[in-house]
């Protein structure tokens, strides 16, 4: 979370926006966001349908597994990796996508 907050100025430069999604209720996320000082949106998806779509909702588990997904401005998923975010890999990709955008 903090890594994304730290990189927001770079996401801005690459015309990207970040949002976090978990199965927590909004009140829980609000508290967490306040505690960490996050300024990007956290989305509560208690029913878990988004995790089913993205392959992070495993049967019998009450939470999403960790995954980072990058969707380009045309709605295509360009990156989907499980586990802790590889911030540098993400930044390289966002830079590349931004350059692609500029060429179109």
């Amino acid at each position: 979370m903090e890594g994304h907050q730290r990189n927001l100025y770079l996401y801005d430069r690459f015309n990207a926006r970040v949002a976090g999604v978990s199965r927590d209720e909004v009140s829980t996320l609000r508290h967490w966001s306040d505690q960490l000082g996050l300024s990007f949106p956290l989305l509560g998806n208690p029913t878990g349908y988004l995790g089913m779509d993205l392959g992070t909702q495993h049967k019998g588990v009450p939470m999403f597994s960790r995954r980072t997904v990058v969707i380009d401005k045309w709605g295509q998923i360009r990156y989907s990796e499980k586990g802790s975010p590889d911030y540098r890999e993400i930044l390289r990709l966002l830079k590349q996508l931004h350059e692609e955008e500029e060429k179109r």
Partner: peptide
């Protein structure tokens, strides 16, 4: 429209 980066975590 922006690039959208979503992460799902605990």
């Amino acid at each position: 429209k922006y690039l959208l980066l979503i992460f799902i975590s605990f």
